[in-house]
Structures are given as structure tokens and as C-alpha cells.
Simulated assay, not measured.
Amino acid sequence: MQQVKQVNQVKQPCLLFHGFTGGPYEVEPLARHLRERGQLCKVPELPWNGDSNNQLKTSRWEDWISAAEEQAEKMTREYGEFDMVGFSMGGLLAAYLSVRYPIRRLILLNTAVIYVSPGRMLEVIRDEWKYERKISLDKAKATPLRATWQFTRLVRKLKPELSQVSIPTLIAQSEKDQVIHPQSARYIYSKVKGQRELHWHPRSNHLICHSDDAAVLFRQVSAFLDKEYMDDSQNQYEP
């Protein structure tokens, strides 16, 4: 069991990233939970969101990294140290930022490392759009395949960055994820350095913050953010 102690502390601001072709709605339930406990949260709509097909047609994976860094630079200027949540593709970008900016705690939700397949990913994303956003089928089909290719390139580029992560990290993975292979979580756990936690959510699909396990996840996140980690980096927790 990892050695931690509970402390009363001023809660850090938190930056939350949504996933590829998604939007703030993907992580907004977690942001609401964190705000209710007194934590300031920023949930920007990022260039890889599902409402900007024209932008997706022309942007490259390098542009997405630049956009992520702009958000981290803004948080650093305004608040100094902050916490970071990344969902799906946003998780990889969050991990990348964590080795370059003053991020205190890193939370990775269904992070895109090993995905089922680009075609299956796109199919599920379309279904989730129609359900969550009630958009038309025509709009869902308008997702440019070029953007999906850029997504796969981003994954290949940022995957090695995981071994550079050394801050306390919480990894959460849905066991019924239709997009990201659950083995991704074990891969991330094996690569990141320092203290980390891995939590499995058996009733959740890809949209973990909207799932039946969401309340459990939110409690785990709260507990993780409130812990003060000891210096013993060999102590990790994997249920």
C-alpha cells in the first residue's frame, strides 16, 4: 500500500483536456465535481474538437501540441502550479505537458496508447456524438479521415513521452472501452516513473465521466488530489 498522508491544503487549479473529436462535455462532469470541492477548473474547447471539421481538415498533430502548450502556458502564467486531467487523446497531451510545465498531479482517463482500430474508433465516436450532442448523421460523417491519420501520428509521437513522467499519476481505465484497448492502462502504468495509481472501472465504456462508474472515479480523483506523497518512489498502488 502506498505511503501517503492526508493534509489540508489549498486546492490547486486544474486544467482538463477532452479527447479527439470530442468536446468539453466529455470531462465536464468531473470538472463540476472538482468545482464543488472548491477547485478552480478550466475546460477549454481545443482544436481537435468535434465541432470544428474545417479546422480538423487542415490542422496537423503538431498544431494540436502547440494548442495544448498554449493552454499550459496560460495556466502557468495565471496560477503557477496546477493539476492536469487528460481524457483519451487529451491524456497523451497531458502527459507530454507534465514534463514541461509545473503540473502537480496528473490524471489520465482512458488514455489513447493502444486503440482498437482507427475505423472502430471513428465509428464509436460518431455514435457518441449523436447520443451526447444530438447532432445529425451528416455532421458525424463529415469527420475528415485525414484527422484520424493525424491522430495516429500523434499517438506514435507522444507514446515515448510517458517514460519521462515523474509526478504522481492516477490512471483510470474503463474495462468496456470500445475505443482504447484496456491494455493501454497497464502499458502506461509500466512506463511512468514515480508514484502512481491504476484503477479499473468494470461498468464503464469510453465516456468514463458519463458512465455508471463515474461517482467512484470522482471519489478516487478527489482522494488522489488530496494526498501528500512521500519521497519513496518505489511505493505504488495497483488494485
Rank of each mutant, 00 (worst) to 15 (best):
M1C: 12
Q3S: 13
V7I: 08
V7E: 09
Q9P: 11
Q9A: 10
C14W: 06
L15G: 06
H18F: 03
G23W: 04
G23L: 09
V27H: 00
L30Y: 03
L30S: 01
A31C: 11
R32Q: 13
R35P: 10
E36K: 12
V43C: 08
E45T: 06
P47V: 00
W48G: 02
W48C: 01
G50A: 00
S52C: 07
Q55N: 10
T58W: 04
W61A: 02
D63I: 03
D63K: 02
I65K: 00
A68N: 00
E70S: 10
R77I: 11
E78D: 11
E78S: 08
Y79V: 01
Y79G: 00
Y79L: 07
G80N: 02
E81Q: 09
F82H: 02
F82Q: 01
V85E: 02
G91R: 04
L97S: 01
L97R: 01
R100G: 00
Y101T: 05
Y101Q: 04
I103K: 01
I107M: 02
N110E: 11
A112R: 07
A112Y: 09
V113R: 04
Y115A: 10
L122Q: 07
I125Q: 05
E128F: 09
E132R: 04
R133A: 14
S136W: 15
L137Q: 15
K141M: 15
K141V: 14
A142P: 12
P144A: 07
P144S: 01
T148K: 08
R153D: 15
L154Y: 05
K159Q: 14
P160D: 04
Q164Y: 03
Q164I: 04
I167Y: 05
Q173P: 02
S174W: 01
K176M: 11
D177A: 10
I180G: 00
I180R: 04
H181V: 12
S184E: 12
I188G: 03
I188R: 14
K191Y: 11
E197H: 13
W200R: 01
H201F: 14
N205K: 13
L207W: 06
I208M: 11
S211Y: 12
S211E: 08
A215H: 14
L217D: 05
F218A: 14
F218I: 10
F224C: 12
L225H: 07
D231S: 15
D232F: 14
D232C: 15
Q234T: 12
Q236G: 15
P239C: 10
